[in-house]
Write a protein that binds this DNA or RNA. Structure first.
Length: 431
DNA sequence: TCTGGGGTCCTAGGACCC
DNA sequence: TCTGGGGTCCTAGGACCC
């Protein structure tokens, strides 16, 4: 059966989740912040209209946000993750097949019906999610993923202009050409700021202009990735649904510091925390890793001089135990650490990851069993009594001031309750 | 004072091998 | 005066995404 692609995109997802459970937010502008409460990563329409960009540092926009009486919230990923699961489950009921593309987006395939018919399907889906989850979605439909994205963008633009409910089906040629001539080239999925600049220099400003470029030029300037995008815009599908998520190849755990860290001891503690968390995550996923890279950086804005460095190593065996990674992170810090820099961020990356095959870790069978039981116990205690109730001393003691002191601590001061995943944080209805 | 965190893919170039 | 022609593997860097 012929099929078409649809993209379901939750509108201002994090803001919408917050508004489901706190109706007072529905009448107010809302911004949701990144970890550390540093940047704005989700904005209600009012906040967008005021010009606050995605990723904007909140301190720079404090006045604007205050002036419009915006609610400024810390992010609550537990809540968003659970809401995302609900949306995906309902969308799946309507789909031939579904790809969980991101926390707030899903690609799906639908039967290739007439355009008015597809429009009905999209509108029905939107009503259903709104009624049963409370989150408004947009739906864009087209013959390829990239054109479904274009349709979704168009649905957004039309809705802002007061023309539609937030659903749109990509038309056939020649109307499609007319639509693409109005899409700025930088708005195409797969064209970021660097390629946008290259294309502008060539005098190409619209999606229609881009897809008309000769293949060899696109291939040489933008690799096969760019070429696929052009073909998709011409209606030839090159990107399939990814029905099973491929196993991850790397895992990064990193954080910016609340303040600045200069001492080696401070960095050591931070890296140990990250290594420990990464190993914990590995165990959660039933995987083991062998490669580890540590990196430290002073950040890029102001505050010179800039320094950034990293170093990688391979352990003697695949593992998911914390201690080898913590030890390695300490060793790898030595050659890259430089005195007198004010470090802003540190992290570890694990690579060479594969599924754990039970009882194959190393020759030291007895030792391994003991360590495995220890890690099981650690995970159980942390699940029961809260994250990081126990851990390695190298990663600092909970609540104690290690070398990192307060500069480490992550601020998340305005997080809303985890309404849907914690019994003690359920919303209360009063009659 | 204050600027997120986590991923993927592709290419070029070097090391090494036969 | 002259520098093979393939391969593979690895890494760094650049591009993109949400």
């Amino acid at each position: 059966m012929e099929s078409v692609f649809a993209l379901v995109d939750c509108e201002n997802f994090y803001v919408s989740c917050e508004r489901v459970f706190d109706p007072s937010l529905r009448e107010r502008p809302v911004a949701v912040l990144s970890n550390n409460d540093g940047c704005v990563i989700a904005r209600s329409e009012e906040v967008k209209a005021a010009g606050v960009p995605m990723g904007a540092p909140v301190f720079k926009w404090r006045e604007e946000l205050d002036a419009m009486d915006a609610a400024v919230l810390s992010s609550n990923y537990t809540l968003y993750g659970d809401m995302s699961r609900r949306v995906h489950a309902l969308v799946e009921e309507e789909a031939l097949a579904l790809e969980h593309y991101s926390i707030d987006e899903a690609f799906l395939t639908l039967p290739d019906l007439s355009r008015p018919h597809l429009q009905q399907v999209a509108d029905r889906l939107r009503r259903k999610i709104l009624r049963r989850v409370g989150v408004p979605i947009r739906v864009g439909i087209g013959p390829t993923k990239t054109l479904a994205k274009v349709a979704d963008e168009n649905a957004k633009a039309r809705k802002r202009a007061g023309w539609g409910p937030g659903t749109y089906v990509c038309p056939d040629e020649p109307e499609r050409e007319e639509l693409l001539s109005r899409v700025p080239v930088g708005d195409i999925w797969g064209i970021g700021s660097a390629y946008e600049e290259t294309l502008h220099e060539k005098g190409v400003v619209s999606a229609a202009g881009f897809r008309a470029l000769p293949d060899p030029w696109i291939r040489s300037e933008m690799t096969v990735v760019g070429l696929r995008t052009a073909w998709e815009l011409r209606g030839r599908s090159c990107l399939d649904l990814e029905l099973v998520r491929p196993d991850r190849k790397t895992m990064i755990r990193s954080r910016s510091f609340g303040g600045r860290v200069e001492s080696k001891a401070g960095l050591r503690e931070a890296l140990a925390k990250h290594a420990q968390r990464a190993a914990e995550k590995l165990r959660e996923e039933g995987r083991v890793a062998r490669g580890i890279k540590t990196f430290i950086t002073t950040k890029r804005f102001g505050d010179p001089p800039y320094y950034s460095n990293g170093l990688a190593a391979s352990l003697s065996t695949h593992t998911a135990r914390a201690a080898p990674f913590v030890k390695a992170s300490r060793r790898l810090l030595e050659p890259i650490y430089r005195d007198r820099y004010r470090y802003k961020k540190a992290g570890v990356m694990l690579y060479d990851i594969r599924p754990a095959r039970p009882h194959q870790e190393s020759l030291f069978g007895r030792r391994r069993c003991r360590d495995e039981r220890l890690m099981d116990a650690v995970d159980q205690i942390n699940r029961r009594y809260g994250a990081r109730s126990v851990g390695l001393a190298a990663a600092g003691l909970p609540g104690a001031d290690g070398p990192l002191g307060r500069s480490w601590s992550m601020t998340r001061q305005r997080r809303s309750p985890r309404y849907t995943t914690r019994w003690d944080e359920l919303p209360v209805a009063t009659a």
